[in-house]
């Protein structure tokens, strides 16, 4: 009888220790959950800042791109005008009275166009200007895609502009916080089982105690998984 009482007493002691462990672990997972949530908030804020920086950069690049393209278009038209005018000098019949007057007009027109084209050409960012000297100016183009990419890359060397660097980490931290919260729920389940084990006096008490142990271990696994 005395042996039985001692066994019950040591069982209760073990379960009490386990309850205390559950409580301490619960406090730990709550702390970790809060840490992860805080980390997620900071990262999210950085991600939004990056998204805003990218938007600002893209808008500025678009405006500059527009300026470049409009100057390029003007250059192309004036240069093309000069090309056509040059070709048209052969269409002036030499037999015509005042043919020299016509040729002079075409010459001055060409000079006007070519000089206007030069002004516009100077205003275009030359690094992205593609021209083929062997063919007509109409084969030239301003490389918008490359300009956009290069400008974005340039901005990226000075500040973070890619929110996707942060957002997966935000999701990870939030998932971790959630894992800790789940671990907390399972720990409270273990607490219920241990309390039941303390309340029951017959041999059925071992079943909830074992279940509580299982839940405790499971919650530890979930909590540790959160670290990886």
């Amino acid at each position: 009888m005395k042996d039985g009482q001692e066994k019950t007493s040591s069982f209760k002691t073990i379960v009490s220790v386990l309850i205390a462990l559950v409580a301490v672990t619960g406090a730990f997972v709550a702390w970790q959950s809060s840490q992860s949530s805080g980390e997620a908030s900071t990262l999210e804020s950085n991600g939004i800042k990056a998204a805003l920086a990218r938007a600002k950069a893209e808008i500025e690049i678009s405006a500059n791109l527009y300026r470049n393209q409009i100057n390029f278009d003007s250059y192309l038209l004036d240069y093309r005008n000069a090309e056509i005018t040059m070709d048209q000098t052969t269409e002036v019949p030499t037999t015509m009275i005042d043919s020299q007057q016509a040729l002079d007009q075409l010459f001055y027109g060409r000079m006007e166009s070519i000089n206007r084209a030069a002004v516009y050409r100077d205003l275009v960012d030359i690094d992205y200007f593609h021209e083929q000297f062997t063919s007509s100016v109409t084969n030239s183009f301003f490389d918008q895609d490359r300009y956009r990419q290069a400008m974005l890359a340039q901005v990226a060397t000075m500040q973070a502009i890619d929110p996707q660097v942060y957002f997966p980490r935000v999701d990870f931290q939030r998932g971790r916080a959630l894992d800790f919260a789940l671990s907390g729920v399972i720990l409270s389940g273990a607490l219920v089982c241990f309390t039941l084990a303390l309340v029951l006096s017959n041999r059925w008490k071992f079943f909830p105690a074992a279940m509580g142990c299982g839940m405790y271990i499971f919650s530890l696994v979930i909590a540790f998984a959160g670290f990886f």
Binding site: A181, G184, L187, S188, G189, V192
Partner: peptide
């Protein structure tokens, strides 16, 4: 009490 605590932790989750 322990059941309610369990429910509470579930709600927290």
């Amino acid at each position: 009490i322990v059941l309610t605590t369990f429910l509470g932790s579930m709600l927290v989750f």
